[in-house]
């Protein structure tokens, strides 16, 4: 049972998919993030940039519910995280698509089966999801590699599989932690474009990266993370714009 607050629901209905207010987080005795104020809205792409070890990945862990806020208020998808049960959090996770810096897969399964996994967890049968997964395979440009096992894929292909898997369950919130790491600039920008496409279906997208140039990919709300402090820079509308209205 998800305990909800009418104010949180109202916030969510007005498009605030994530709202953090004064959130602290860390590991063990160390505090990594302090006083985080953040909001991600439906149909909006947020790009969080910053140097290495600034706290970007920890911020992503907070957003993907792998890390509990120590203080402050975190409301995601209309649910106050501090008051949510384990089952409620699991249900929330099913509405979050996550592309990790080093994605974990079931290596001996095919890319297709890995992409279909979120749908299987939702109880869908292959006949229900085969068409949708094939569309995702085409969308991310995986082609025939979808039938290969993960262990046979290149780094770029693995990243595409991770993106397709993150999008499979039509998530409300999409997170990508340094999705261009280890990729060529062209491949990296293609990956980010794929992710930002999802704003068209009303998802909130949060991308963390060291690469400041990704702000050029499209209309993006920019944030900067530095030594555990997050600051809002503003909207970046200038870009190559080739795929955007």
């Amino acid at each position: 049972m998800v305990r909800t607050n009418p104010v949180d629901i109202d916030l969510y209905e007005r498009g605030a998919v994530v709202r953090f207010a004064g959130v602290d987080a860390g590991y063990g005795a160390a505090t990594v993030l302090a006083g985080i104020e953040f909001e991600a809205r439906a149909g909006e792409v947020s790009l969080v940039t910053g140097p290495a070890a600034a706290g970007k990945t920890t911020f992503t862990h907070l957003l993907r519910l792998a890390l509990e806020p120590r203080s402050g208020r975190a409301v995601m998808l209309g649910v106050d995280i501090a008051r949510a049960s384990a089952r409620a959090k699991a249900n929330l996770k099913k509405r979050i698509g996550y592309v990790a810096e080093n994605p974990v897969f079931v290596e001996h399964w095919s890319a297709f089966d890995n992409i279909a996994m979120p749908l299987r967890l939702l109880g869908q049968k292959p006949r229900d999801y085969d068409h949708d997964v094939q569309e995702l395979v085409d969308f991310v440009g995986l082609g025939d590699a979808a039938d290969l096992t993960i262990e046979k894929l290149s780094n770029a292909e693995r990243r595409r599989v991770a993106i397709a898997r993150a999008l499979a369950a039509k998530p409300t919130l999409i997170l990508a932690d340094d999705p261009t790491a280890g990729m060529s600039p062209a491949d990296g920008r293609r990956v980010v474009r794929l992710l930002t496409e999802m704003r068209r279906v009303g998802a909130a997208i949060v991308i963390t990266s060291q690469d400041e140039s990704l702000a050029d990919v499209g209309p993006i709300l920019r944030w900067r993370m530095d030594r555990g402090h997050l600051s809002r820079i503003g909207y970046e509308t200038a870009g190559d714009g080739e795929d955007y209205e």
């Binding site: 699991a90 996770k93 974990v104 897969f105 979120p118």
Partner: peptide, 12 residues
């Protein structure tokens, strides 16, 4: 790895 993936994807 499967447990980790399932956990990440919201399996209880």
């Amino acid at each position: 790895e499967m447990v980790t993936v399932m956990c990440d994807l919201g399996a209880t």
